[in-house]
Write a protein that binds this DNA or RNA. Structure first.
Lengths: 329, 329
DNA sequence: TTGTATGCGTTATCAG
DNA sequence: CTGATAACGCATACAA
């Protein structure tokens, strides 16, 4: 393994000089810079990230805190895009990323979680899928020991930023498109998990729409469960003109129920997962660019680590209809 | 942050003694062991993995080399299970895991890849989704600088193990079940990517079956593409009694094509992904326990790092029929 | 502008 | 059985 020492010797300079060149410090002459870079190139030297992380207080590792949802490939699709976006951006930003699942820390105390992350040299955390009930995470965010970016939850403080689309607007948009296309007056809205931040926001969006358009709104709690959405649709769709769901999976459950009951009601979902293309009936849905969101989260973490204040970042969303022909490949 | 130094001071022993207790070295008295452990517990000390990895030649990090396949949620589902299994097992085995995608190293030379992994303190690699064309990976495996476990490819040497199900047998099993249930005599077999190791093995399985049962076998190259499988089915299924596919995605493409053409042919797939439950028609398929496979891969890596020789590990598989009612939740 | 020396938190090798 | 002490590879304050 070629180390900084080898480069220094070969270039005839001190180790610290090499280090300075590598981290482009201001006070290095163009000549030595050239010389060092030439040797670095020739020896194929790549600085040891582990050592750098140990030595420097700046170079930090970041943890991706992922919520796994077994038995549904939908969340797998989303999580993979999150991971993929994060990992690629991390390489670009020279961050070292490790993946952690909520299940791994769910029965730890704040101190334990903190100790665990510190033991891993973690300086920044990206939290995917946080709920209002995650007490430990709330304490972690307020603890101030880590720079944190939270996806889809409105947590902002000196060292915490939030990144997400405008869920209120998105739910409003997709529902509006669906009801105007179909002239609906009474809406069955199947909401998500009670403790989810997005659940409340999306609910706000549909309420806003119904007030504006003077529509009758019927809210049921689907808990992001396809099965529950199916059951709720079976029970309540007859007296409503359309079914607006807070997730694609629930939209699929609803649509399948409608097909079985052999009645037609427009259904719309949320997220834009590929599975939507396999149901047979097209539905409107909100498309989130999860890769992009995750990339942005890492950049935001970079800003935080550079000493900037936490803030709220809003990402764009689009409306789509997913067809089998479009997603097959 | 509480360090080993704090523990040593508090326990009134030397740093090296604490280290010995932590790594349960033989020569430590029961008394000091107790004392140290008590302090460790009380201070909530967790050893810094980064420092350990820098210092020790044994404590190593492992890289998960994942092949991303955009536009298909099927591979996302599989990859998430791989990652999940690996990350959890890694925590148990005290390994530090980082995730790397093939795309990140695809235009690097062996030396560059080696330098990159070394710079990350990587000592072991788990390769998911390797093909015969991955020259760099082949060199990496033969280079001997890393302990490697390859999933689904028959690579074995002193520091390389392979972990996979018996693809020959699995393809044989699922096809046999399908043809005996339906009394087929002529089989359309839609194979996978030419360069995949599993493609050849599964092909061997179907050939073996056809020879044994004196069936007519018609092999087409579907390249693991749902679209190609769809087209091939449109073109060739009329003259065959059933369609055996080397992947679920292709099976879905085939089944959708048959439904559109309004003809019935039994179809079977391979992998057991959740999407299979959404097609409407039940199909036989081979179920692989990807989580379990990934866990086993990490354990195997542990053995390799402990100095044991590489070997071939075969995991069990099962046959299933996937119904919407079973997968919904 | 460059080099020296120290420290980051461990593990490992020796003396004692 | 225990405790100094030297690595591990790099960053950085400080001296030159």
């Amino acid at each position: 393994m070629v180390s900084i020492k080898d480069v220094a010797r070969e270039a005839g300079v001190a180790i610290s000089t090499v280090s300075k060149v590598l981290n482009n410090y201001p006070n290095v002459s163009e000549a030595t810079k050239q010389k060092v870079n030439e040797v670095v190139e020739r020896l194929g030297f790549v600085p040891n990230a582990v050592a750098a992380s140990l030595s420097s207080k700046k170079v930090g590792r970041v943890a991706l805190l992922i919520r796994l949802n077994l038995n549904t490939s939908a969340s797998d699709e989303i999580n993979m895009q999150y991971i993929s976006g994060a990992v690629h951006k991390a390489k670009e930003l020279q961050f070292d990323v490790i993946t952690v699942f909520h299940s791994m820390i769910e029965d730890m105390s704040v101190d334990e979680v903190t100790a665990y992350f510190e033991s891993q040299g973690i300086k920044g955390i990206i939290i995917y899928g946080m709920t209002t009930k995650d007490k430990v995470l709330h304490k972690l965010i307020n603890g101030g020991r880590f720079k944190i970016v939270v996806i889809d939850a409105p947590m902002v403080n000196a060292n915490t930023s939030s990144v997400s689309i405008d869920h209120v607007q998105a739910q409003y948009d997709v529902a509006k498109k669906t009801i105007t296309e179909n002239k609906c007056k009474k809406i069955l809205y199947i909401a998500g998990e009670e403790n989810g931040y997005v659940t409340a926001q999306r609910l706000e969006g549909i309420k806003k729409l119904c007030e504006e358009k003077k529509l009758k709104l019927n809210v049921k709690n689907g808990k992001f469960s396809e099965l529950r959405a199916r059951e709720l649709t079976m029970r309540y769709s007859k007296n409503n003109h359309c079914v607006v769901c807070a997730s694609d999976l629930m939209a699929i459950g609803a649509m399948k129920a409608l097909i079985e009951m052999d009645i037609f009601r427009p259904v719309c979902g949320f997220d834009g997962i590929i599975l939507m293309g396999y149901v047979g009936k097209q539905m409107n849905t909100v498309k989130q660019d999860f890769v992009r969101i995750s990339e942005e989260a890492l950049e935001e973490l970079g800003r935080l680590m550079a000493g900037e204040e936490g803030r709220k970042v809003t990402m764009p969303h689009t409306l789509v209809r997913m067809k089998y022909e479009d997603i097959i490949c």
